[in-house]
C-alpha cells in the first residue's frame, strides 16, 4: 500500500514541514502520522521545532484532530504550529502578486476612476469607491463597495455600499435621473420612470440611506445632517 509515503517529514529552514498525501483516506493519514512520530522519536529528541502542514486542504474537524494528536504526543516538543493552508501555495503567490500589482497601480487608493461614458451594457464594478468622469447612460451599471460619484448625468443604474460594512454609503451625480439606484440592501426606482430631484437641476444631487429608506436631495447642510444622523 505504500503507507510510508502518506506522511512525509521535511526539514526546512523554519522548522518541520509535514507533507500529507492528497488523496489518501484521512484516517490512514492519522495512523501513518502517529507511526511516523513514534519512529522518529530518537531523531526529534529534545529539540524544539515549529511545524507546518502542507499537501492537502483540511476541514476544521480534521485540523482539530491533527492538533489534538500533536498535543497528546510526547515525541516532539512543538513550539509553534503554522496556520493551516486552505489554498495551495501557488494561489497564495498569485494573491500576493495581485495585491502588489494593485498597490503599484493607479488604483492604489480605494477608488476606481472610470474615464468617459459608461454606456449601455457596460458594468463598472469596484470594491472601493467608483468615480465616473462622464455620464452613466441608460443600460449602464455602476456598482461599488463604497460610494459612487458621477461627474455627469446618472441615467442608468448605480448601486453603492455593496460592502455592507461601509458606513453611510452614498451616490452623488450632477444630474440624477437613474433608472434604479441601490444603497446597501435597499433599492429604489422612481414611480414615473425618472427621479424628480427638487426644482434646480444644475446642482449635484445626493442619494443616501436613512432608516432603510433611500433619500435623494440636493447637497446642502440640512441634507448632510439628515444623512449622518
Amino acid at each position: 500500500m505504500g503507507e510510508e509515503n502518506l506522511v512525509v517529514f521535511k526539514g526546512t529552514a523554519e522548522g518541520i514541514m509535514v507533507l500529507l498525501d492528497e488523496n489518501a483516506d484521512f484516517e490512514e493519514i492519522m495512523d501513518n502520522f502517529k507511526q511516523k512520530l513514534e519512529q522518529s522519536k530518537a531523531f526529534f529528541k529534545g529539540s524544539k521545532v515549529t511545524m507546518r502542514f502542507k499537501g492537502r486542504s483540511l476541514n476544521r474537524q480534521q485540523q482539530d484532530r491533527l492538533l489534538m494528536l500533536l498535543a497528546n504526543q510526547n515525541v516532539i516538543n512543538i513550539s509553534f504550529v503554522h496556520a493551516f493552508e486552505t489554498e495551495s501555495s501557488e494561489q497564495e503567490d498569485n494573491h500576493l502578486a495581485w495585491v502588489k500589482e494593485q498597490l503599484d497601480s493607479q488604483y492604489a487608493s480605494l477608488s476606481h476612476f472610470h474615464y468617459g461614458i459608461v454606456r449601455s451594457g457596460h458594468h463598472v464594478d469596484y470594491q472601493g469607491n467608483v468615480i465616473v468622469l462622464g455620464d452613466v447612460n441608460p443600460g449602464g451599471l455602476v456598482t461599488a463597495g463604497g460610494n459612487v460619484i458621477v461627474l455627469g448625468a446618472l441615467k442608468g443604474k448605480a448601486h453603492a455600499g455593496l460592502n455592507l460594512k461601509n458606513d453611510k454609503p452614498f451616490i452623488v451625480a450632477y444630474t440624477m435621473h437613474p433608472i434604479q439606484i441601490g444603497i446597501k440592501n435597499s433599492i429604489a426606482q422612481s414611480p414615473n420612470g425618472e427621479f424628480i430631484c427638487g426644482t434646480t437641476t444644475n446642482c449635484p444631487q445626493i442619494a443616501y440611506l436613512h432608516d432603510e429608506q433611500i433619500y435623494v436631495d440636493q447637497i446642502d447642510f440640512k441634507t448632510l445632517n439628515h444623512m449622518l444622523k
Binding site: 454606456r119 449601455s120 451594457g121 457596460h122 447612460n137 441608460p138 443600460g139 449602464g140
Partner: peptide, 8 residues
C-alpha cells in the same frame, strides 16, 4: 439604447 451599446 442599442446604439449606445454598439458604440461601447
Amino acid at each position: 439604447r442599442d446604439a449606445d451599446r454598439i458604440i461601447g
